[in-house]
Amino acid sequence: MDNYNPANLLLLLVILFNFFLLGSSRLGACIRTVAIQGGILSLLPLFLHGFTGHALILAGGAFLLKGLAIPFLLLRAIRQVHIKREMEPLLGYVPTLLLGTLATAGAFIFSDRLPLIEAHRGSLFIPVGLATLATGFLMLITRRKAITQALGYLIFENGVFIFGMLLAEAMPLMVEAGVLLDLLVAVFVMGIVMHQINREFSTMNTGQLSSLRE
C-alpha cells in the first residue's frame, strides 16, 4: 500500500476530525468541523476516479451540500435558538473518545478480516468508513441536544459516503443524488423541529420529549 496516496491522507484527516468531534463541546466548532470533513470527502471521488464527468458531478454535489448548505443551515439554527455548547452529554467526553478509539481500532481489525475483492484489500476506505459510521452512532447515542444528534446523523452519512466511493462506478448518479437530497431534507426538517422544540419547551434537550404533559 502506498501511504502517500493523497486519498489516504485525506481519509486520515477524516479520522482525526472524528476524534475531535467526539471530544469537543462547542457546537459552532463541531458544525464547522463536519463541514470541513464533508468538504474533504467531496474531494475523494476526484482522487479515486479521476476527472470524469460522473466524479465531478458527485464531488460538486457533495461539496455544495455537505460543505456549504447543510453547515450553513445548522449554524443558522443554533444562532436562532441561542445555544453554544452541548451541556450535559449522557456519557462524558473522555469515555466517548475512548469508545470512539476502540471502535476505530475495531474497524481497522475487522476490515482486515472481511472477504473483500483484491482491489479493495488494504485500502483505507473501508476501515475509515466503518470508523466514521461508528463515530456517527456514538454522537447519536450519547448527546442530548437535538442539534448534536443531527450532527451525528451527518457524520453517519459521511461514513456511508466513504463506502459509496468504492462503488461509485457501479452506482448510478441518481442514487447518490437521492441520498444527498434526503440528507438536505432531513436537516431542513431537523431545523424546523428544533425550532419548534425550543419554542415549546424552551430547551433543546430531547430527553424532555419523552415526558408527557397537558
Binding site: L16, V94, F108, D112
Partner: peptide, 20 residues
C-alpha cells in the same frame, strides 16, 4: 486531562495504523 487522553488515543491510533 481531556486533551492528554485525546493525545494518548491518537498515539494508540498511530500504533494501530502501523500494525494493520
Amino acid at each position: 486531562p481531556q486533551l492528554l487522553v485525546g493525545t494518548m488515543l491518537l498515539s494508540f491510533f498511530s500504533l494501530i495504523l502501523l500494525l494493520r
